[in-house]
Amino acid sequence: MVKIIECPRDAMQGISGFIDTAIKAAYINQLLEVGFDTIDFGSFVSPKAVPQMRDTEEVLSLLDLHHSKSKLLAIVANLRGAEDAMLFPEIDFLGFPLSVSETFQKRNTNASIQEALITVEEIQNRCEVAGKTMVVYLSMGFGNPYGDPYSAELVAEFVQKLNQLGIKIISLSDTVGVATPELITELFSVQVNAFPQIEFGAHLHSRPEKIEEKVSAALLGGCLRFDGALQGFGGCPMAEDDLVGNLPTESLIEFLESRGQQLELNKAELAEAMKLIPFVFNP
């Protein structure tokens, strides 16, 4: 069955005005009622780097997890953030942004790829002890605008390294919305077949008219895990295109169900979540 990871953290983090903590928590609590597999709810990173996420710990304390089947994922960018996240038993997954682009890795985590790989190994070792699962996002997984080396073979090399570290979930990320359907299908089909023990996800950014062809291509390649954000909020600021945002979850759901996927989501609760969006993302 296809898994949908709803990403309010990704949707909120680029909003310049600070969203009230109580509003964040109320929105995420409503998302928890929908039945998504996982909620990417916050991040343990420097408040200077991402001011919007400075209240993640407080938001977590306000979440009602008792009647939800959804799991929680928090993003971390270094070992210190990971250790902070591991203090909370409510958090199931720790997500780490690893890039195949040296330029973007330095911009995103202020570290080289080699340094980031060492950090991945350290966090993975601690996750195994703490009973957490690490999710590695391969940023710039479909190409980059910096002129850094890129190829499908390079992506395969990264996956091989992560497999050797015991990583069980890898999300291929189209950070700036450059992926073609052909490349999406190729990358997923090759990796899914080569590493059946790894769960591969798609974190795709897209212009609205390209959404269905990209999701269809990922399905064709064997991807069964998709990230989305209601109404497509979020995306990479470096894309320099307001239309290249996250996959709108409502569009993702509609398309997947049209392809016969049984998602087992509570549509009434989803409608209530949609009603809250103007109050959350009001500039």
Rank of each mutant, 00 (worst) to 15 (best):
V129R: 13
T180Q: 05
M134T: 03
S206Q: 05
L32K: 00
G177T: 05
M86R: 08
S258D: 10
I184C: 07
Q114C: 12
C127N: 10
S139L: 11
I113L: 07
L256F: 13
Q13P: 09
P89N: 14
R107W: 06
N246H: 13
T133D: 10
I91T: 06
K69E: 12
F36S: 07
N78D: 15
D242V: 09
L252A: 07
P8F: 01
P181S: 08
P149A: 15
G260V: 04
G17Y: 10
H66N: 14
S43L: 04
H203I: 12
L219Q: 05
D242I: 08
L252H: 12
H203F: 11
E213F: 03
R207F: 00
A77E: 09
Q231R: 14
E153L: 14
V176S: 04
E121I: 02
G201F: 02
T21Y: 07
K161Q: 13
D148Y: 03
L172C: 05
V59G: 00
V100K: 00
P149G: 14
P145D: 10
P278I: 07
I123D: 04
T56E: 10
D84I: 05
L183V: 15
N144H: 04
R207M: 05
L138I: 12
L256S: 12
S216A: 11
V45E: 08
L94P: 03
G245C: 03
P47R: 11
V100A: 02
A74P: 03
K69N: 11
F142C: 11
I4Q: 15
K71F: 03
E57S: 09
S61Y: 06
L165A: 12
F195L: 11
N108S: 11
L256Y: 11
E209T: 08
L60F: 07
P51Q: 06
E157P: 01
G166S: 11
G201P: 04
F255M: 05
D227E: 15
G245E: 01
S139P: 00
I4C: 04
E6H: 09
Q105Y: 03
T249D: 10
F188H: 04
C127I: 02
S70A: 12
F36A: 07
F281L: 09
Q197P: 00
K267H: 14
Y150W: 15
A25M: 04
I184W: 02
F88Q: 13
E157D: 11
E213Q: 15
E182Q: 09
V135M: 11
I15L: 13
L65P: 00
N144S: 13
L165N: 05
G147N: 02
G143A: 13
I23H: 13
S206P: 02
F18I: 13
T133V: 14
A217D: 00
D84F: 06
L183P: 00
I169F: 13
F96I: 03
G260W: 02
E254I: 01
A130E: 09
D40I: 01
E257Y: 09
L94M: 12
E199K: 15
D227F: 06
L60I: 04
L252N: 12
D64S: 13
E102W: 02
A229Y: 03
I5D: 08
E157R: 07
N125R: 12
V59K: 01
R207P: 00
L276R: 06
F200L: 09
G35T: 06
G166T: 09
K3W: 13
K214E: 06
T133M: 09
G245F: 02
S68W: 03
E58V: 11
L60M: 09
V136F: 06
K106E: 07
